[in-house]
Design a protein around this nucleic acid. Structure first.
Lengths: 354, 354
DNA sequence: TTGTAAGCGTTATCAC
DNA sequence: GTGATAACGCTTACAA
């Protein structure tokens, strides 16, 4: 039962190196003026002793936290919500942790924070808020927080901090251009009735594109409230697609505004004896495994999550090393919206009519 | 530019309540002996002031960290590795954060820790290590850490701490029984050549099952080193499956030991004009979206990740409230292995020959 | 250039 | 029961 040798502290280093704690601190952090020889000596001693500064102590002294909190959405009323996005959130978390570490910060996942106190106790000075929604239950908690905040997804209120969003408008444009180039003339959109702000925005982008070109557009709505699983969501999309495709003047390109809708559309086409992409083109506004594995694989917009999170962290910490003035990072403008470029993953559901 | 009102501290509460800091601490934590009236008074004042204890300060004083670190595997030599498991890791991270919070701990994701110092600086007192491998580059770093550790996945060395693993042996047994019940007589296994300890273990379980019943078993190996994408991995599995299915005495049940292998097998069967499950049964040892979305959906073993992480956290923190003696949690036995029950998700790839 | 000392917010020790 | 006081390990005026 050997007692674990306690980690060396500044005091230890100072004693061994024969200098004061201040000098050690300055020598290692490069802050004050220290003689070059003293500095290298201290550094060497620190290395030999295996000294590592304690984040906790440093944070307490500095009044910050060195960690950024990732706030996942509360699981909403929709039973589907959690299922729908759990994989997505996982990806966000892992990527966010990498980006945070790039800024010398650790990342802490805060699944569901109930009261402002709970959040405050973490002393987080930076927060990434995922998918803010219209009547988000997290709002009161967040308002009470003094942490720097960046929202991932459009903030309907634009009051907590800047938002980082994928440039879905650009994405829709690229997608529609692509569909047009593949011969589409009339379009159909299948939209979920969820309170994510991106859905209305996508619909609007589509409408604008069509209006500008005089193209015909039909919009079908899927009631997700009735769906309990992703399969049911796909099936519901299939129903809606079925109706649209049965119409005499059926659209020859169908876009699903949810990860699960594409395959629903394909199933609908197939059951009507229509070939994809021969008779109807199919695409989604969000890429994902479903789109990649579908038969045929579905053309979709790649949201570029790493770029989104890099942008978010940059917003929080960017000018930190240059500006010593404030709490670090650039001034955060509440209703500013940073758009991140997206790209189109073109797949067999829209090309190769052969 | 109003200065943000600093968060109230124990000192503030003490002053307002007209008592000492000690009394406040005792009153709020319930540790020492405090008069009931004093206690409720202090509590009320604290509530009014919106006092929230600072985790940082508390941790410094107590010498702990209140957070558990999640150590993702280093991205290994295999280019595929990251792709293969990124979704999985994300799920692990989110679920782990929930389980950690259940024990009043925050969860921090540490993607790739290079030197022992870096890890030490976090002062983590609990660590969940993901997928320890045979020659894991993280070992020296971990050995140097004094944190309590639990490994998720079998530890080939059994030296760092207890391992939590899904009971794949049980899973294989259930799966094989199921296949046998569905009419299989000869079996084939398609295994990747990756250094995860679970693969050899699964193969062994399969061999034992077959040996006990005198059933014939063939094993095919896929060289993942040549694969750069999941698609290529599936294609490689398809090649191997093709060879096995072309043999005159082809197996009538094929099991893929990787999430992407199932669909490769199905593709192989299809291209040989064999129906699934009519002519050949197909299954995987790991469930996932791929298995669910495949056509037909693939029977697979559900690894029960939430249960695994719950077990891991329990191991770390279980007896904390009862035992005040040590650093919390039960004694961690290095080579102990905790197995978590798994279940079989039966799907169309093995049933409904009709 | 270096050292002294105060302070960050909390808990633990030990008097009263 | 309650309250000084000293840690915890670090940073940083301010002095020397």
């Amino acid at each position: 039962m050997n007692k674990v040798p306690a980690r060396p502290t500044v005091a230890d280093v100072a004693r061994v190196a024969g200098v004061s704690r201040t000098t050690v601190s300055h020598a290692l952090s490069g802050k004050g003026r220290v003689d070059a020889r003293t500095r290298s000596h201290v550094q060497q001693v620190a290395a030999e002793l295996g000294y590592v500064p304690s984040r906790t102590a440093r944070n307490l002294a500095l009044g910050r936290s060195d960690t950024v909190g990732l706030l996942l959405p509360q699981v909403a009323h929709l039973p589907l919500d959690e299922l729908l996005r759990s994989d997505w959130y996982g990806r966000v978390a892992v990527i966010a942790s990498q980006e945070a570490l790039r800024h010398q910060r650790a990342l802490t996942i805060l699944p569901a924070v109930h009261d402002p106190g709970e959040l405050a106790s973490f002393g987080l000075d930076a927060l990434v808020v995922l998918d803010p929604m219209a009547h988000d239950p997290r709002w009161p908690v967040l308002r009470a927080s003094s942490a720097r905040m960046v929202l991932l997804g459009r903030d309907p209120a634009g009051i907590l901090g800047p938002s980082v969003i994928p440039d879905l408008d650009q994405g829709i444009t690229i997608l529609m251009d692509h569909l047009a180039a593949c011969g589409a003339r009339t379009y159909g959109v299948i939209a979920p009735d969820i309170p994510w702000a991106s859905t209305p925005a996508s619909i609007e982008s589509t409408e604008q594109w069509c209006a500008q070109r005089g193209a015909e557009l039909r919009i079908g709505h899927v009631r997700l409230a009735d769906c309990r699983t992703r399969e049911e969501a796909a099936a519901a999309a299939q129903d809606v697609a079925m109706t649209m495709l049965r119409a005499p003047d059926r659209p020859d390109a169908l876009i699903g505004l949810l990860e699960d809708f594409g395959r629903g559309v394909i199933a609908a086409a197939r059951s009507l004896g229509l070939s994809v992409p021969g008779d109807v083109l199919v695409a989604q506004d969000v890429d994902g495994i479903h789109a990649q594995l579908s038969d045929p694989p579905i053309t979709a917009i790649e949201l570029n999550l790493p770029a989104q999170l890099a942008a978010a962290m940059d917003l929080l910490f960017a000018q930190e090393r240059t500006v010593q003035a404030t709490s670090g990072g650039r001034e955060l403008v509440a209703d500013e919206v940073i758009t991140v470029p997206v790209s189109l993953a073109v797949r067999a559901s829209t090309v190769g009519k052969a």
